[in-house]
């Protein structure tokens, strides 16, 4: 693996909501390597978006980092309180592609102006230069006739085209890290692949480090080098793409993979995870997944599991990996893919 570009250590994030405290990120640690592409997967509300927004200081004002560090380029981003300290990082160092291209663009400004705005903020360049650069970025993201299109308003673009514009804005200032927050969820299936390959191509060309946030495991398999599985504000398992897909260890990852319709057995009812994710307003004891976990141990209700290393690149937070734990067989369909994985490594 390459150098660590961004390192998160034991991050805790809390939101104050009308006098109640929501503990959204519960002690997450993560190293992001230069040039890699990491996918963070998890169901809605697991804290994937909130977690990555911490890197850019984009969470709402009622959210505050309670403890922990985010080290980037020798600085601790968790300590930044002033907006002006964030400004050069946002867009300049770390950029973001949002989920819904239909609403992410200002409807009253031409798309050219919106891209130029980003360029002018981060690069010492005059209007003329910014214009030229804007046109080249538009061409980079695959928009034909950039001169004409730059003068148009967002409502004159289709969804896929708008997402290209959003990506153009994100990469216009040559950031080091690109966070793609469900970049394809709002798009037609036919467009999804185009956008993903565009991001992939840009990543290779510009040497970006990519973080994908998604709940779509199909997307993950396509683009990710590594996968982090989030549940209830915590990364429960992290490892290389193959490790997670073919040798998952955490019962939540099992459940998540089992929920893929592709893995269902014909004639059997589709798998679904029982119960609901925990309410993060209340303090969680033990393993957050325990109440829904058919493989839970008694200790899961008492003590939060630490990370157990499976391989140098693969670790999971579950007591099942403790030497004292009884040997438990994963569900049948997980065993099936494991076998498949070992058959063709």
């Amino acid at each position: 693996m390459g150098d660590v570009i961004l390192s998160v250590k034991d991050l805790n994030l809390k939101f104050d909501l009308r006098g109640r405290v929501l503990h959204a990120i519960r002690g997450v640690s993560l190293d992001l390597y230069k040039g890699e592409s990491l996918a963070i997967v998890g169901e809605s509300g697991s804290g994937k978006s909130v977690f990555t927004k911490c890197f850019m200081g984009l969470n709402d004002l009622n959210g505050h980092i309670d403890s922990g560090e985010i080290l980037y380029d020798g600085k601790d981003l968790a300590k930044i309180t002033q907006e002006k300290d964030w400004l050069p990082i946002r867009g300049g160092e770390i950029a973001m592609v949002m989920q819904d291209p239909m609403t992410s663009l200002n409807p009253l400004k031409t798309i050219g102006a919106q891209i130029e705005e980003a360029i002018l903020l981060h690069q010492k360049i005059d209007r003329h230069g910014a214009h030229a650069q804007m046109l080249s970025v538009l061409k980079d993201v695959g928009i034909d006739e950039p001169e004409r299109r730059a003068r148009q308003y967002p409502h004159e673009f289709s969804g896929g085209m708008r997402q290209r514009v959003v990506i153009a804005i994100a990469v216009a200032c040559r950031p080091k890290i690109l966070i793609c927050d469900e970049p394809t969820t709002a798009l037609d299936v036919t467009i999804q692949a185009q956008i993903l390959s565009l991001i992939k191509e840009l990543r290779d060309r510009l040497g970006l480090t990519c973080v994908y946030i998604t709940h779509d495991l199909g997307v993950v398999a396509n683009v990710a080098d590594r996968i982090a599985v989030m549940y209830a504000g915590d990364i429960v398992e992290i490892g290389l793409c193959e490790e997670i897909f073919y040798d998952p260890r955490h019962p939540y990852t099992w459940a998540l993979l089992s929920s893929l319709p592709q893995l269902g057995v014909r004639g059997q009812p589709l798998f679904s995870i029982k119960g609901t994710p925990p309410n993060l307003y209340t303090e969680i004891r033990g393993d957050a997944f325990a109440p829904r976990n058919p493989y839970a141990l008694e200790i899961d209700f008492v003590e939060r599991p630490p990370y157990f290393d499976v391989s140098p690149t693969h670790k999971a937070r579950t007591w099942l990996l403790d030497p004292r734990a009884p040997k438990i067989d994963p569900p049948v369909n997980i065993r099936a893919i494991r076998a498949k994985g070992s058959a063709n490594p």
């Binding site: 029982k274 325990a290 839970a296 141990l297 008694e298 008492v302 007591w319 009884p326």
Partner: peptide, 10 residues
């Protein structure tokens, strides 16, 4: 008993 299986209470 901590490392015993717990029953899933739906």
């Amino acid at each position: 008993n901590l490392f015993q299986r717990a029953k899933l209470d739906e």
